[in-house]
Amino acid sequence: MVNSADFSKRIQRIMEVYDLNASSFAERIDVGRASISHILSGRNKPSLEFVMKVVKEFTDVELYWLLNGKGNFPSTSTQQEAEKDKSSTTTPSQSATVQNHESESSAFSNQVANKDQMIKKVIICYNDGTFDAFEPSNL
């Protein structure tokens, strides 16, 4: 379970690093200003949607750090450059894997759609604390 006071401090740290106030932070992650205020005051706990919006908008914020305070923030520029290099370099086997996943997810979407249900988001969590989130636009 996430400690609300510690989570609030990590959100404040993100706001400090990016030189944002609560209002501009709320705008960046597309949530209401009251949501930020309630989380910062400890009144409310963050929802999964809130956490995912923060991680998606601020790419150098690691999910594990945000939730547990373990890891580094902000990431060092060396780590950021390494991540950019890794994500921009795709080997042929990685390309085949991505294509395979795309066809599998398309088949899965068709199965679910036949039951009058639509997939909103698929999140895959890895044992190293990282994750991938897929929304209908990229399934």
Rank of each mutant, 00 (worst) to 15 (best):
residue 1 M to R: 12
residue 2 V to H: 05
residue 2 V to C: 07
residue 2 V to K: 05
residue 2 V to W: 03
residue 3 N to G: 02
residue 6 D to G: 04
residue 8 S to W: 11
residue 8 S to H: 06
residue 8 S to G: 13
residue 9 K to T: 07
residue 9 K to N: 12
residue 10 R to C: 09
residue 11 I to H: 11
residue 11 I to E: 08
residue 12 Q to V: 13
residue 12 Q to Y: 07
residue 14 I to T: 05
residue 15 M to V: 08
residue 16 E to G: 01
residue 17 V to M: 03
residue 17 V to L: 05
residue 17 V to W: 08
residue 17 V to E: 12
residue 18 Y to M: 03
residue 20 L to A: 08
residue 21 N to W: 04
residue 22 A to N: 14
residue 22 A to R: 15
residue 24 S to Y: 03
residue 24 S to V: 05
residue 24 S to D: 12
residue 27 E to N: 07
residue 27 E to S: 07
residue 28 R to M: 06
residue 28 R to N: 14
residue 28 R to F: 02
residue 28 R to P: 01
residue 29 I to P: 07
residue 30 D to T: 04
residue 30 D to P: 00
residue 33 R to M: 02
residue 34 A to K: 08
residue 34 A to L: 07
residue 37 S to Q: 13
residue 38 H to F: 09
residue 38 H to A: 09
residue 38 H to C: 00
residue 39 I to E: 01
residue 39 I to T: 06
residue 40 L to M: 10
residue 40 L to T: 09
residue 41 S to R: 15
residue 41 S to A: 10
residue 42 G to E: 03
residue 42 G to M: 04
residue 42 G to H: 09
residue 42 G to F: 00
residue 43 R to M: 00
residue 44 N to T: 14
residue 44 N to C: 02
residue 45 K to A: 11
residue 45 K to T: 11
residue 46 P to H: 02
residue 46 P to L: 02
residue 47 S to E: 03
residue 47 S to M: 02
residue 47 S to I: 04
residue 51 V to M: 09
residue 52 M to V: 02
residue 52 M to H: 10
residue 56 K to E: 15
residue 57 E to Y: 01
residue 58 F to K: 06
residue 58 F to E: 00
residue 59 T to K: 15
residue 59 T to I: 09
residue 61 V to Y: 02
residue 61 V to R: 03
residue 62 E to F: 00
residue 63 L to Y: 11
residue 63 L to S: 09
residue 64 Y to W: 03
residue 64 Y to H: 04
residue 66 L to C: 05
residue 66 L to W: 06
residue 66 L to K: 07
residue 66 L to E: 05
residue 67 L to P: 01
residue 67 L to V: 13
residue 69 G to A: 13
residue 70 K to Y: 04
residue 70 K to I: 13
residue 71 G to N: 13
residue 72 N to P: 00
residue 72 N to E: 15
residue 72 N to Y: 02
residue 73 F to Q: 05
residue 77 S to M: 12
residue 81 E to A: 12
residue 82 A to K: 15
residue 83 E to T: 10
residue 85 D to F: 06
residue 87 S to K: 15
residue 87 S to W: 02
residue 88 S to D: 12
residue 90 T to R: 11
residue 91 T to Y: 07
residue 91 T to A: 09
residue 92 P to W: 05
residue 93 S to W: 05
residue 93 S to H: 08
residue 93 S to A: 10
residue 94 Q to N: 11
residue 94 Q to F: 13
residue 95 S to N: 15
residue 97 T to P: 00
residue 99 Q to H: 05
residue 99 Q to R: 15
residue 99 Q to M: 13
residue 100 N to Y: 04
residue 100 N to W: 04
residue 101 H to C: 12
residue 102 E to H: 10
residue 102 E to Q: 14
residue 102 E to Y: 09
residue 103 S to A: 14
residue 104 E to W: 07
residue 104 E to S: 15
residue 105 S to G: 10
residue 105 S to P: 00
residue 106 S to M: 15
residue 107 A to W: 05
residue 108 F to K: 08
residue 108 F to T: 13
residue 109 S to I: 07
residue 110 N to P: 00
residue 112 V to M: 08
residue 116 D to K: 11
residue 117 Q to M: 12
residue 117 Q to H: 11
residue 117 Q to A: 09
residue 117 Q to G: 06
residue 117 Q to W: 03
residue 120 K to D: 09
residue 121 K to F: 01
residue 122 V to D: 04
residue 124 I to D: 04
residue 125 C to P: 00
residue 126 Y to K: 08
residue 126 Y to W: 02
residue 127 N to M: 02
residue 129 G to N: 06
residue 132 D to A: 08
residue 134 F to K: 12
residue 136 P to Y: 07
residue 136 P to G: 09
residue 136 P to W: 12
residue 137 S to T: 12
residue 139 L to D: 02
